[in-house]
């Protein structure tokens, strides 16, 4: 079943589009990597999916609805981990979790059960009453991750998840992602850590200058670039060189 479907999406911050006629889908239980150079349009694509930017053309369907058709259903269907953690300076860690649970209509008992296991997994149990000003960059990132996994949505949208996390944090995140995938959730992840993407992603979308340059499994990509046995790093560099020749 298709969870997320982008059809000919064109859009950007101004009239001049950053992403052009973007089309791809993500199915149930799929982990898809969104890969591209700086400025290729990864973050812009994500902003269109989460609905902070509206497409100039094309449409985005999540769980069968567009944002304008059913705002509540659309928004309840995903959770988002931004590249830079966005926290409320005035809320403690406990309150971040509580606020998120409240917003997504999770009852108090479920909140308790889910947050206990997340806090343990990310080793943050002792910081429940702390304000974000006392958190390191990695801890802030962990708060975002815990809030996202607390919601247990159909789709996770994760922007550059590994920057700032310690190795144990990365491990925990990957485990959580794996677990959710097994339960049928889908994940769209943008990253520059290509070896991790290659290892964990079911499919990869290579973005280049706002368009999908290639997408599919690693084997599909190798075929598209005519580079058998290539790693994702090789393919990425090949794409960079293509840009230089243009």
């Amino acid at each position: 079943m298709t969870v997320l479907q982008l059809t000919d999406v064109t859009g950007g911050y101004t009239r001049k589009p950053v992403i052009k006629e973007l089309s791809f889908t993500i199915g149930e239980g799929e982990l898809v990597g969104l890969i591209g150079l700086n400025g290729a349009g990864k973050s812009t694509t994500i902003k269109h999916i989460i609905g902070t930017l509206l497409p100039q053309q094309g449409e985005i369907r999540l769980n069968g609805v567009t944002l304008s058709e059913d705002l509540d259903k659309y928004r309840s269907s995903f959770s988002y981990i931004p590249e830079t953690p966005v926290l409320y300076d005035e809320l403690t860690l406990r309150e971040h979790l509580e606020l998120t649970a409240m917003a997504y209509g999770i009852d108090e008992q479920t909140l308790e059960v889910r947050s206990q296991s997340l806090l343990k997994e990310f080793r943050m149990e002792k910081r429940l009453n702390w304000f974000p000003s006392h958190f390191s960059k990695g801890m802030r990132q962990k708060v975002m991750i815990m809030c996202a996994f607390l919601v247990n949505p159909q789709l996770y949208i994760i922007d550059e998840p590994f920057v700032g996390l310690d190795p144990l944090g990365i491990q925990s995140l990957l485990e959580q992602m794996d677990e959710k995938k097994k339960d049928g959730a889908s994940i769209l992840m943008s990253t520059h850590i290509l070896s991790t993407a290659e290892k964990h992603c079911d499919r990869i979308i290579l973005l280049h200058e706002g368009r999908v340059r290639a997408q599919g499994t690693m084997n599909d990509l190798r075929r598209a670039f005519q580079m058998p046995n290539a790693t994702l790093d090789d393919l990425y560099i090949a794409m960079t060189k293509e840009q230089d020749h243009e």
Partner: peptide, 11 residues
Amino acid sequence: GDFRMDRLYPV
């Protein structure tokens, strides 16, 4: 002003 997470909440 800045982006806040509650902009995405289904409320």
